[in-house]
Amino acid sequence: MSLERRMLIRELKLIIARPGDIIKPMWFLVLVVSMVPLALVPDSDLLSDIGSAMIWVATLLALLLNTEHLFQSDFSDGVLEQWLFLNRPLAWLVGLKLIAHWLFHVLPLILITPIAGIMLSVPMEVLLALLVTLVIATPALTCFSGLGAALTLGSSRSGILGVLVMMPLFVPVVILAAGVLIRAMDGSDTLPLLALLGAFSVVAATLVPIAVSAAIRLNIGGSN
């Protein structure tokens, strides 16, 4: 069994052992979305207009909630140190970890957004566009929040600092996704924007793991 496969299976086992880690962000997402009509007015026309944007923001927050401690447990129990001694580039292992995180933590979150969409009476074709934007955009977001988590690994009282530091970099993703949703609402062509969004994700997924591995090396090298 290859190292890569063993790593993925380990991540999966960790999830099964602690299902709370994926349930809590989902819980948070649905809870935030159900606050929207309460804080606004339960007018379904208005809700369907702003609903997709609200779900996007809520998903972003839920995502940050579960990426905040992405490397923390691996750091404290010494797994990250072991990575340095494997005959694989660190950036590759980081990339695998990020892929596993996206598969087991982020994807489940995306899969419940249709429920949130129905709660906010988002029209079907917009809901579909929302799902597509989330699937395409979240790899980039996962990478950036992973970088935030890696940069703040060494400090014990960083709190949500990793998130705050990375948030500004989400701007292009949010703007492009909002562009797709607006076009989906008035029925025009969304493909060019989706392609741009995809390009952003691909570039982020290739380059950010290198920065993450530098940040991890820094924290491990700095502690001794």
């Binding site: 970088l147 940069l151 060494g154 400090s155 705050l164 970099l169 920065a211 530098a214 820094l218 700095g222």
Partner: peptide, 30 residues
């Protein structure tokens, strides 16, 4: 917000060398 992030990151990490390198990574990505 980007500037704030760089300042906050440095303030959070005690070791100045490590803080400097972490900020460097953040600035380059930024």
């Amino acid at each position: 917000f980007l500037y704030l992030g760089v300042i906050g990151l440095r303030a959070a990490i005690q070791d100045p060398d490590q803080a400097g390198k972490a900020c460097g990574i953040l600035v380059l990505v930024g």
